[in-house]
Amino acid sequence: MTELITTDRPTAQLAVSVNGLEKNYGDFQAVRGIDLSIASGETFGFLGPNGAGKSTTISMLCTLVTPSGGNAQVAGFDVVRQRAEVRRNIGLVFQDTTLDGYLTAERNLRLHAELYGIPRGMVNDRLRQVLDMVGLWDRKDSKVSTFSGGMKRRLEIARGLMHSPRVLFLDEPTVGLDPQTRSSIWSYIRELKQAEDITIFLTTHYMDEAEYCDRIAIMDQGKIIALDTPEALKASIGKDRVQIHTDDDAAAIAALADQFGITATVAEGAVTFGVERGEAFIPKLFAEFPLPIRSVNVARPTLDDVFMSYTGSTIRDAETTVAQRGRDAMTMFRGGRR
């Protein structure tokens, strides 16, 4: 019976609902049919290398880009047919700053309040509240152009919250920030979760940040290839990650396959593979492996490993490939114009 009740009223409960969403740019398929359901109050992480289609997906959910196929509802409103309603119910923090550097922090927020039609009587209270939340109240009269990268990001988060959105979209909220600022941004986000009843949808390519999410989706080449809680995803691999450095990687991979029946790949410059109970496997490896091993490293599963087991490369390698693809495309383009 309880099953029935929860499934009976899905749209009212869901903050974000996505069905077969697609986006093509000419021949290039940026997003290739994704499905998602995000419950109200959830912190949902979108994980993947640059160029995986995360930002395009967010842009579609925020009504900035029209989907080529499929449909999506945010806060119960359709992102194509009810753009204004969607916009009213979402807050946005983009990868690149969208603040007016010539204006003060306070003016930026007041401008936002006017654009979003926040009732005049509430603006002062809300302004104080969001600026306090991100620790910028004492800087409200400073021009935004004098702010550091971390302060700007905090101000943008505050601005995104001004109109009490039901869903807050954060596109790479910590990219380009130093580790200390990154962690302070995260503590603001966690505080925010407690202060406001809000759903957070964020993208990141920092694996450690994905750990803060209730659920994460791993996206690669326009598709969602895994979707679960961070714990469940890590448990789904079940294996420890072993990396060995040898003088001949190809021979080492062959030897691992022959003698232990293990499929290994080269990642981050080392022969990498997963085994159960890694600490017990190492003595056996040293005893029976035919090649000299220069160093060895065993690690419990991390989200990096999850990413690797689903995509066959680490997120850093995947990014290199994307960058390389971009350069290749540029070369081809220039070649073609010559």
Partner: peptide, 24 residues
């Protein structure tokens, strides 16, 4: 600690559009 001022953004109205024009 201010009480959480729960803002409800009103539906689109002519007054809202005029406010937007004015601030821009």
């Amino acid at each position: 600690r201010l009480p959480v001022a729960k803002v409800r953004v009103p539906v689109r109205t002519r007054a809202g559009e005029l406010r937007a024009i004015k601030i821009v």
